[in-house]
Amino acid sequence: MTKERFKELMQPIADGLFGKQKPYHMQQGTPPVVRPVGMIVEDLCTISDDEWAKYAFSREPLNGKFTDEQRVELTRKAMACGREYAERVVQEQGVRDPEKLAEKLGMKVDYPRMPQSTDRVLFAEFREPNKIHIYMDGVDKGEVLFAEPGVRHALTAQLDIKKLLLGHELFHWVEEKYRKEIWTRTYRLRLWEVGPVHNDSTVMVLGEIAAMAFTQALNNLRYSPYVMDAYLVYGYSPEAASALYEEMMTFAGRTPRLPEELEPA
């Protein structure tokens, strides 16, 4: 062990003993290889609808209850549901632009700027009955990244991050409005039964998947808005975004590329 390595290992202990009291950050395993953001979005934009199923469900509390086949099937249904309601709302209101739609539907949208921690980056939030927060800190950082090589090409000029986030949150309002009939809320999973007693539950991630399809339709995008998970995190932490990229690619059954595999432009 070299002297530097020893020092590095002792540092957290020394900080604990003599440092100022500060919020705790858990040290993580080996950091992932950082990729250029252009490579990340280029690869992620090619992931198909079905291939997003495993990643989407990995954020579902009841994920352990499903097989891979079920995950794909439910993802398809949820996406169909999201698209269906997108067309329905567009028909009813006569506009497709998420900002105009939000206005017509009487939503109260605000754009707070709030710094974020990298463990969990919050993009947007819907609060019943009609409040939507779009967190601009992440949006701004994402817009700065447009200048990076390959990003604009992969994400296309069609992308407006603010509108994409807004469209997602609008779906939660739609879901609430049609909660009696909309498939994402009527689908029930039986968790357990003992004789006549049983517990049926909705599956929260279906609403999220549908919301992604909903906003994808409103924004006319060719790729899944799930790409934003990694893209917007990149603005905060290229390491965390690269880890997400690896996770998404692996869930999609693909091999994540390494930076040196980038073809010279």
């Binding site: 954020r59 969990r120 993009f123 819907f126 609060r127 019943e128 949150e169 939660h172 999220e208």
Partner: peptide, 13 residues
């Protein structure tokens, strides 16, 4: 009021 957030979870998931 219930709320729904779109957030990227970079760890623990």
């Amino acid at each position: 009021k219930t709320s729904h957030a779109w957030a990227a979870q970079t760890r623990g998931a």
